[in-house]
Simulated scan of single mutants.
Amino acid sequence: MAHSTAPAVFDGHNDVLLKLYRAGGPAAAESFVTGRDGHIDLPRAAEGGFGGGFFAVYVPSEVDLDDKYDQMNQPSYDLPLPEPIEWEDALPVALNQAAILFRLEELGALKVCRSTADIRACLASNTMAAILHIEGAEAIDPELNTLDVLYQAGLRSLGPVWSRTTLFGEGVPFRFPSDGDIGGGLTDHGLRLVKRCNELGIMIDLSHLNMAGFWDVARHSNAPLVATHSNAYAICPHARNLTDEQLDAIRDSDGMVGLNFAVAFLREDGQMADTGIDMMLRHLDYLIEKLGDTRVGLGSDFDGAMVPSEIGSIAGLPALRDAMRAHGYDDALMEKLCNGNWLRVLEKTWGA
Rank of each mutant, 00 (worst) to 15 (best):
A28H: 05
C338F: 03
W162N: 06
A94S: 10
G304I: 10
H229T: 04
H39C: 09
L281H: 01
H238L: 04
G185A: 03
R325I: 15
T127P: 05
I119G: 05
D78H: 14
T146A: 15
F302I: 06
M280W: 01
V57W: 00
E199M: 11
G276T: 13
P173D: 04
L346G: 00
A2G: 14
C113E: 04
G49Y: 01
L266C: 08
A218I: 09
I131Q: 00
A139D: 04
H327R: 12
R196N: 11
D148A: 12
L132M: 15
V33K: 13
Q246L: 03
L101V: 01
Q271M: 11
V257A: 05
D141F: 01
D11I: 04
D278C: 12
P160Y: 02
G201E: 13
P308Y: 03
G35M: 10
G48Y: 08
A124F: 00
S221T: 15
M279H: 15
N260K: 13
D254T: 11
Q71M: 15
S230D: 02
A305C: 11
C113W: 00
R120V: 10
A262F: 11
D15W: 08
G340H: 00
G169H: 05
L287E: 01
S115K: 03
V112E: 02
G328D: 02
P318K: 00
R114F: 06
L132P: 02
S221K: 12
A109F: 07
D37I: 12
A326W: 00
E30P: 09
F50W: 10
L343Y: 08
N96S: 15
E245C: 07
R344H: 06
E199F: 03
V149C: 10
E310D: 15
M72H: 07
N222C: 14
A99I: 08
N96W: 12
I182E: 03
L346W: 01
K348C: 05
A29F: 01
W87A: 11
V57D: 05
W215V: 02
I134G: 00
A264L: 14
A218E: 09
H283N: 01
G35D: 10
P92W: 07
L242M: 11
L291Q: 10
A305S: 13
S230K: 10
E335K: 13
S309G: 05
I140M: 13
G108W: 09
D252H: 07
L186K: 02
P7V: 07
L104H: 08
F102H: 15
T228R: 01
V9D: 09
D11N: 12
D205T: 02
Y21G: 12
R114I: 12
L65P: 06
D285R: 01
S300D: 03
F168Q: 04
V161P: 09
K19L: 14
L291C: 11
D64C: 13
G185T: 01
H327K: 06
I131M: 11
Y77T: 10
V16H: 08
G299V: 04
S309M: 10
M256S: 06
A23K: 06
L104M: 13
A46S: 14
D67F: 13
A239H: 00
S157N: 00
A2W: 07
N222W: 06
N260S: 14
H3N: 15
N126Y: 03
P80F: 04
L167S: 13
A130D: 07
N198I: 03
C236W: 02
V63R: 14
D41K: 08
I100P: 09
L200T: 00
D303R: 11
L225P: 02
S31C: 04
S221V: 13
G108C: 05
